[in-house]
Amino acid sequence: MYDFFFVLIPRHMPFLLEGALVTLEISLLSMVFAVLIGLACALGRLSGGRVLPRVIAVYVEIWRDVPLIVQLMVIFFTLPQAGISLPAFWAGVLGLSLNVGAYLSEVFRAAITSIDSGQRDAGLSIGMSRLTVFIRVILPQALRIAVPTIGGYFISLLKDSSLVSFISVSDLLRHGTILISNTYRSMEIYFMVAIIYFVMSSVASIAVRMVEQHLTPTYLRAGAAKAESRRAEAARVPA
């Protein structure tokens, strides 16, 4: 016990935290690209073209049916064969974004199609273009519906990103295994790694919940409608 808290932690924590920083970077970057990919694919699929929606459907299907670790391996070992040399970090970003993007495209698609067609009619009927209707009427409502799910995917990604350690990205897990091969203290080091993942995920969950609450507009907040009208009534009664 003494050894763990007063020798191992001070000695190895900095190196592990360096890895944790890489885990955060790769997760955040991948998430940004995944959101862009997901949104673009959702739009492509809803575009009503003949070819594009099918191509996207095939991408989504393949990426959801192959294990993430296998996708990462394929990308990492195939790209150099094709003459593209990506540093491991960026191969990891590519793999993770394509993977999460496939899932998010379905999330966005569901959110967009869930918006009542009356909203579109209303926008068009006051002379908006289709694009304006999408940007000002459909998308803001769809995004608010999608945010909690996107947040959930981010928290999963934070943990699943540990798979990039298998393609030699120096993330938290990889720094852990490096330490273990030098010290042979598997149990203690994995324990520290676990604690760091736990803290990162919990903080991320809290952050996601805060963003969610901030974004949940008054019109969707339970009870808010009543509270607001009560406040308005109260304000009208002279003191």
């Binding site: 009542d116 009619d121 209303a122 006051i126 009427v137 608010r144």
Partner: peptide, 17 residues
């Protein structure tokens, strides 16, 4: 033309957000 003849719908279709 549409902007000059707006429509009022059975289910209101107000912009919810």
């Amino acid at each position: 033309a549409r902007a000059r003849m707006p429509m009022v719908f059975q289910h209101f279709n107000l912009f919810a957000h």
